[in-house]
Design a protein around this nucleic acid. Structure first.
Lengths: 358, 358
DNA sequence: CTGAAAGCGCTTACAG
DNA sequence: CTGAAAGCGCTTACAG
């Protein structure tokens, strides 16, 4: 088998006793071919095990049917949801979604360590002349897009707000910060600590702004605490420090930029049975990354992000780009909130839209 | 811009004042070209914004440089790890890994509802003539592979043990069952309940077998409990039933086929403060899916699966397939164990290899 | 409804 | 070290 030539369309044509063009029509415009001929051709395809050569096809049509999606890292649940939303929507429309995982170094805030493959995949999809590219960028995508724009036109930028000649799908990170703080105000907290690493990425800055806005509108006292990272241990360190400075009997709210930060804070509270949650300390996380609500020692109240819907929207927009009257859109999807015992105490029930699954 | 022709290699050749072949050599065999010519060509490429047409290239070479990976669903952390392992390894070798998410319906055990896209992606990669396909199958892959085998030779089957003309990368699901039970025996448990849905997939059957072997070798009393699914609520239901039948003072061990089942069991125990963990009831999960050890009300002891390493191995094997003296291999990777308070009580410390990250 | 022919943009021996 | 030429396997007007 190994050395054999693969069957070509020509071989199918000969076997079926028709011309090349007719075979092609059977595959691409079946209605143009008489039923009897069609059946004969299909039988020939079947018996030869013919599989169309995408390279030849794409070369002639000067584009491929695939749609590329570049995400920073599927380790982050947000991008898993996004990929599934795009995947399932693309599948429904008969397109193949190709997922490229850039392995962006989330863990590290040292820009020297960030050796992701975003550009490599952008070039790959450009070489492939895919029908479109969905690009979940972690930094300004303008240069990368300009480099390849001539080669694949429909591009949708996801999760990075940058004006340009493309559609954007965003989530409302400011809203996330705002409603978290409003929720704390709603349960009676007046003094809020916002715990976050520096503004190394757009969502971080936006959530910070939202928190500030919420605090201002609610008349809360807001203190920003800057951490070295966005993981559990950074949250623990921040909470330990807050407790050291907390006045006796004072009620405080802890807002973590990520769920991991909030969980780290809860970890410290576990060692302090004298503190009541949420009466003394209330905790909330902003990225819906954590979904262990039912097994947490105290279930975490958290913002939920619309990853799945962002993937759906991105496919819709990238397809719309091929339509005659297309106008670029900037879609901002709302976030949700999942309530837990970390702000509601034992009264908490599972609830809230989670935007995770269809 | 939109209607413009894209620059071709021909355009680059003209601009640089060389022939087509020389441009091609600059891109593919730079050492064959004189440095001065090389620079001239590269400058032309740069100034025209030329990007190679993969279709034309692949057509001529009759294969593409991509490697396809088909996974059931990245909602499952095992496959996220697998994809990252393959992704990063492929990247190191200059190959592009294309991830296809089949959206296999894990949630449902009704075979009629399983409308996954595995076959669709298999055909897609065959049409693309990728350099290889890594196929994490949920059912016998033989038919699918036979259909496309002539079109892409190097195929590695992941996570499904089926003899055939290919390499396999597996994890040791029997070992998972065995060491879980041995661990329970080690802490003094003599009566074990194994909670699992029916053997709808190979890993389920293998883990069951491992549990039975472990129980036999340790002389434990084993009872199998069959559930309708593998989620939290199924574990809760099973545990509730066990407690109803438990003799006073009897010590029992609960082994869940998945972490979710085990967490469901812990959820029930939370309502029973009179029961000590692990002195009265010990709990362990078998799939390392849950990683909230630090926020759990009782941290779960769990088996950890070697997803990342499976991805690495699969890339190694698919590349080896192109080598002259290649022999198919069947690689079985060991699992690990992460200890938690659900079997060790408050003495538990985080530990054990988790096979998650490099 | 069917077929003959041109051409998509590269790579690869091969000759010089 | 460089170039002329063939050909990979399709699709697409176009003619019949």
């Amino acid at each position: 088998m190994t050395g054999d030539k693969l069957p070509t369309m020509q071989a199918v044509a000969e076997k079926a006793g028709v011309s090349l063009a007719t075979v092609s029509n059977v595959m691409n415009q079946p209605s143009r071919v008489a039923p009897a001929t069609r059946d004969r051709v299909r039988a020939a395809i079947e018996s030869l095990g013919y599989i169309r050569n995408a390279a030849a096809r794409d070369l002639k049509r000067s584009r491929s049917d695939g749609i590329g999606l570049i995400v920073p890292d599927i380790l982050n649940r947000l991008f898993v949801d996004m990929a599934r939303g795009a995947q399932i929507t693309a599948g429904q429309r008969g397109l193949s979604l190709l997922l490229a995982n850039a392995v962006y170094a989330f863990e590290s805030f040292d820009p020297l360590v960030v050796t992701d493959q975003q550009d490599q995949f952008l070039d790959f999809f450009a070489e492939e002349r895919t029908s479109g590219i969905l690009y979940a960028a972690m930094s300004d995508p303008t240069d990368g897009i300009n480099r390849i724009r001539g080669h694949v036109r429909p591009i949708v930028v996801i999760n990075y707000d940058q004006p340009g000649d493309w559609c954007s799908v965003l989530m409302d990170n400011r809203q996330a910060g705002r409603i978290a703080v409003e929720h704390l105000a709603g349960i009676g907290v007046r003094r809020v600590f916002y715990v976050s690493p520096p503004d190394a990425a757009q969502p971080i800055a936006d959530r910070r702004r939202g928190v500030a806005e919420g605090a201002a509108s609610q008349g809360l006292e807001l203190t920003e605490v800057t951490t070295d990272g966005l993981e559990f241990e950074h949250g623990s360190a921040a909470m330990a420090e807050l407790l050291a400075g907390r006045a006796d009997g004072e009620r405080i709210g802890f807002v973590g930029m990520t769920d991991a930060l909030a969980l780290g804070a809860l970890g410290v509270l576990r060692e302090h049975p004298e503190l009541r949650i949420p009466e003394d300390v209330a905790v909330i996380g902003l990225d819906g990354t954590h979904d262990g609500a039912r097994s947490d020692w105290v279930s975490l109240t958290s913002i939920t992000l619309p990853g799945y819907r962002m993937g759906e929207e991105a496919i819709r927009l990238v397809l719309d780009e091929a339509q005659p009257g297309h106008r670029h859109e900037r879609v901002i999807l709302p976030v949700g909130m999942r309530l837990g015992a970390s702000t509601l105490g034992s009264a908490a029930t599972a609830g809230g839209a989670d935007g995770t699954t269809p």
